[in-house]
Design a protein around this nucleic acid. Structure first.
Length: 287
DNA sequence: AACCAGGTCATGA
DNA sequence: TCATGACATGGT
């Protein structure tokens, strides 16, 4: 088992906040998923060295997550790939400091301390989010899993089979019956259009990373099924353009309740990261 | 049995 | 521009 030391990071929050699909936590406590096409088995171990922090007045949760911890993992993917996937080199404290100091966001950050926006593969991000509209997370997972099972690379590991998200080419021109079996409903034509426009270069994802946020957004909006919300998700999760602030029903709710008259720009240059905290916070309250 | 789900598109005023 | 319903399917 390989190890990476980390701080200000919480793997569970990061993988279960709904920003990425297909990661699965087994009963053995490990998360299983793919990074850069390679299977990754990973868990976080908190070291028991909280004594220094116990004397001050920080909350229990926060002092727990302030401790250094270790990611233990097995994978062919390199440590640097894993670090960049979880954005571990981003100065988390700096991000938090840049936020406005209102009570709602502060409580959300405290509760979900260590939640990070990850750096997904842009194509996977786009295609899975196209499937997310007017849908619920368990079913999105189901659809994407079925698509992967049918068209993705199979990896055998510890007696089980895992499937990577399919390459664009595998989806492009695949038999319609595979798509139908994924039960995507009206979204199948959106997936089609996304695959088509990326494949033929009508939408050039490689160029997107060098574009400023509003221009990149316009590019993504050319795809049928990609509106403002999904475009912002792709900009945030696939390109780490942090000023993107996806507004879904939950964010709309919390904005109406605590941030009347404001929009994403209120949260500053890392608004998208604030968005993830607010999303988790308001969902945690409702359910 | 209804209602809803990390929305978007096509309509019509 | 802006409100309104349809859209497929299955979870709760």
């Amino acid at each position: 088992m390989k190890k990476i030391k980390v701080k200000d990071f919480n793997l569970d929050h990061t993988l279960s906040c709904g920003q990425v699909f297909r990661w699965h936590k087994h009963t053995d406590g490990f998360w299983y998923g793919f990074i850069d096409g390679e299977l990754v088995k990973i868990k976080q171990v908190f070291l028991d060295r909280g004594d220094k922090l116990r004397s001050n007045n920080r909350s229990k949760e926060q002092s727990l997550s302030l401790r250094n911890s270790t990611l233990e993992y097995a994978s062919k993917a390199s440590a640097s790939k894993i670090k960049s996937y979880f954005n571990l080199s981003l100065d988390y404290r700096k991000v938090i400091k840049s936020f406005p100091k209102d009570k709602t966001l502060s409580m959300a950050i405290k509760k979900y301390w260590g939640l990070r926006v990850i750096k997904q593969d842009p194509i996977e991000c786009l295609l899975t989010y196209v499937l997310s509209s007017q849908n619920n997370i368990p079913r999105i997972n189901k659809m994407v899993n079925e698509l992967s099972r049918r068209l993705g690379k199979k990896v055998k590991f510890e007696g089980k089979e895992y499937f990577a998200f399919p390459k664009l080419k595998a989806i492009d021109g695949c038999s319609k019956h595979h798509i139908n079996a994924c039960r995507m409903g009206f979204r199948d034509k959106y997936l089609d259009d996304a695959v088509k426009k990326i494949s033929n270069g009508e939408v050039n994802l490689k160029k997107l990373s060098n574009m400023c946020c509003p221009v990149a957004r316009e590019e993504l909006l050319k795809i049928k099924g990609v509106g403002p919300k999904i475009a912002d998700c792709v900009l945030l999760f696939g390109f780490n353009k942090y000023e993107a602030f996806p507004v879904d029903v939950w964010i709309e709710r919390i904005m109406k309740k605590y941030y009347k008259g404001k929009d994403g720009s209120y949260f500053g240059v890392y608004a998208g990261i604030a968005q993830e905290y607010l999303y988790m916070y308001i969902r945690g309250q409702k359910i």
